Amino acid sequence: MAFTSDLDQITRAAAGEPAAIRALVHRYSPGVLTLASRMLGDLAEAEDVTQETFIRAWKALPGWEPRAKFSTWLHRVALNLCYDRLRRRREVLPGDALPDLADASAGPMEALDQMQRVRSVEAAIARLPERQSAALTLCALQGHSQAEAAEIMDISVEALESLLARARRTLKAELLGEGGQR
């Protein structure tokens, strides 16, 4: 089970073993970077958040108690750092964090139209209140279960479901209002 393996590596990393630290960074940095990129819309800022997440993790590791999965705890640290940056910024700018979803077999006009739709969705997600954006990002874009996302956000599953419902309603209304039905 990965949790047992993580616990072993966490123990070794807390003791300062470089190989264990590298293994944990290698395993978890892509997910943390993706979360931060989607929340912040800026790859350079997301890289800073990822680095800060791991710095905070290593400082806290000797006293860390496995009440939650390490990945859940790490994502919560990253999400809180994203919230801090968003509050300082006071606005979220959509970025190039989501992959281009254009179908390679489509013609250039169809691909351009699809890319514009993806950018509209990115921008709409970025304009959501930060907790709704985080809930949608964790569940729909990052693939976390509702239970995991609720734990990362430190809220109940019911509260997460409510955030997701409000986020989806807001997105639907905004996207349908922008350019008619899509």
Rank of each mutant, 00 (worst) to 15 (best):
R76T: 05
W58M: 11
V32I: 15
A44W: 05
G107P: 03
R38F: 10
T72C: 07
Y28E: 01
A44P: 00
A19L: 10
P18C: 08
A19I: 01
D113I: 04
R117L: 11
R56V: 00
L79M: 10
S37Q: 12
R119W: 09
I55D: 10
R119P: 00
E110K: 08
L79Q: 10
V92L: 08
S29V: 00
V25N: 00
Q51F: 08
G41Y: 14
F54T: 06
G63S: 13
A106E: 10
P94W: 13
K59V: 05
D113K: 13
D96A: 12
A111G: 13
K69V: 00
M39R: 15
W64A: 07
V32L: 03
L43D: 08
R67F: 11
V32N: 05
W73A: 10
F70M: 04
G107F: 04
K59L: 09
L128M: 04
S37E: 11
L61W: 15
T72Q: 09
P18K: 08
F70A: 12
V49F: 05
G31Q: 11
Q114G: 04
A44H: 12
A14D: 05
A57L: 15
A124P: 05
A20N: 06
A123C: 03
W73T: 02
Q116N: 08
E52P: 01
L40F: 08
R90M: 07
A102E: 04
D100R: 12
G63V: 03
L86S: 08
A46P: 04
A104M: 08
L93E: 13
V25A: 07
E65K: 15
R127C: 06
P66W: 06
R89A: 14
E110Y: 00
V49H: 13
H75M: 14
A14C: 07
D100M: 04
A126E: 05
A57W: 15
E130C: 03
E45R: 13
D100K: 04
A126Y: 03
M109V: 07
F54G: 06
A124H: 10
L81G: 03
R27H: 14
A102M: 01
D100A: 09
K69Q: 15
W64F: 15
L98V: 03
L98S: 14
D96I: 02
K69I: 00
Q116R: 14
E65F: 01
L24F: 10
V118T: 14
P30F: 11
M39C: 10
P62A: 01
R22G: 07
W73S: 05
H26F: 09
Y28T: 01
R67V: 06
L33Y: 09
D84N: 11
L24E: 07
S120V: 00
A106C: 02
W73P: 02
A124Y: 04
L74Y: 06
A126L: 02
P62Q: 02
A123D: 09
V77Y: 02
F54Q: 07
A60F: 00
L43K: 12
A20D: 06
R22M: 03
R56E: 08
W58A: 07
L35V: 04
A15P: 01
V92M: 08
W58I: 02
R119F: 09
T50R: 15
R127M: 09
K59T: 11
V121H: 01
P108I: 07
T53A: 14
G107S: 11
F54M: 06
T72F: 10
D96R: 12
